[in-house]
Design a binder for these strands. Sequence first.
DNA 1: TAAATCTCTGTACGTTGTACAGTTCAATGT
DNA 2: ACATTGAACTGTACAACGTACAGAGATTTA
Lengths: 247, 247
Amino acid sequence: MPEPLLDLLWRNRADVPVIRRRGPKARHSTTDVVTLAIDLADEDGLGAVTIRALAQKLELTPMSVYTHVNSRDDLLVLMADQAHARMTPTSFARSAWRTRVRRVADDNLALLKEHPWLLDLDDPRTALGPGTIAKYDRELHAFDGTSLDDVARDAALTFVLDFTRATAARIVVRPATGEFGELWEQSVAGLVAYLGDDLPLAQRVGRVAGEAMGGPYDAERAWQFGLARVLAGLADLEGIDPAPLVD
Amino acid sequence: MPEPLLDLLWRNRADVPVIRRRGPKARHSTTDVVTLAIDLADEDGLGAVTIRALAQKLELTPMSVYTHVNSRDDLLVLMADQAHARMTPTSFARSAWRTRVRRVADDNLALLKEHPWLLDLDDPRTALGPGTIAKYDRELHAFDGTSLDDVARDAALTFVLDFTRATAARIVVRPATGEFGELWEQSVAGLVAYLGDDLPLAQRVGRVAGEAMGGPYDAERAWQFGLARVLAGLADLEGIDPAPLVD
DNA sequence: TAAATCTCTGTACGTTGTACAGTTCAATGT
DNA sequence: ACATTGAACTGTACAACGTACAGAGATTTA
């Protein structure tokens, strides 16, 4: 039986590693397993990460996968932590907090674009992993030099990351083409008939926003809109807002 | 075979209803089916909404459920729309936009507390339903009298709702007690050992934020923090911000 | 009365996670 | 040297899921 999740998460520790195990050597390392699982998820989403598919990639039988992880849920946590650990953050250099926060948001958006399946994953145990904790620490430093106390600092970071995640979800999952597109258009046509002249505001705004969404520039625009709101909201908290130096 | 999803969503229309169907009368209305499905979800989450469980509640065989809905996915969309339709919004009265936006956020938080499963549901077809569209229209009106154009109005509402959803997700899903609690404490104990003295900022902030989260007041505090940021961010957009009248 | 078209049923299939009982093999204790 | 231990791996099997498909029975329409 594999080690508990916590130990698997921290498997790259310098401590206590080299107790030669008995039995045959494992054909794959834990990292191999997790990496291949991430490949599956990157290609076809979390749904494609089945024990059987993973076993095939590893050239093992399905049940042998359980030699390496205790359950599929544990595997997903390991995947998330590895993704967080492998993230390559933009340096904060000597920039003002606004710029640093912007970098945090941009980096997280990039992360979620690269690994959209992270959006479908919400296991609190992810917070136990070294990759996730290191990311948390790094991003907390974005607020260095501000007047935020510890609780506010955590809340502010959460605020930024929640925004990023929500917007990423809207940017990233865009099938919207192919034969699904036709079905959608049909539905919208029928919808117009049902709506008639009711709810004019919703119709007008929905149409405008929908058209804008068709264009390639809107995802970016929504992102900039929201990010500017986030920064303004946080600046308000600062009271006296040091003029952005690098923006 | 049941009608297409769009027609099921709009089944309460005054138009075209009374064409007497042939065969036997259905033992349940579509609304019955959806209501019972919502009951299941309210009690035990979306995972409890299985065709078989629903069939049992309806005193039908599993396959008979498909007389009323085309698929489980369609059912979920119907559930979401009904939840939106049954929402009882707080009146805007004659309040300032800040107050109105606050009401929108509060109402949505209440909705998500009542139906946490809405957090697990992300089918774009929900936007086709009358309940959802009416909600969209009502909430867009929160920005009446501001300088926002249509695109910005949609973006602003999205911004508020995304924040609400993210915070609700953190507030609502709190098992955290029972025997799971022990397992968690064990993990945290082990985690402390692994962490040692590394990442002091993450440790300090994480501890403080974590302790605050234990207390009953913090969920509320995070909510107020974020909501204040959202309002400040939007106020910034307004440029000249009319003093809040009712706050 | 016959045809059409509904509701509802029973059986069955494919896919999923994974429990359980082995088999094989390398390191350890004697 | 040899038995013991424990780890890696395998094969079979089960329960739960969504739902395809073929029909049975009821009720309206021609």
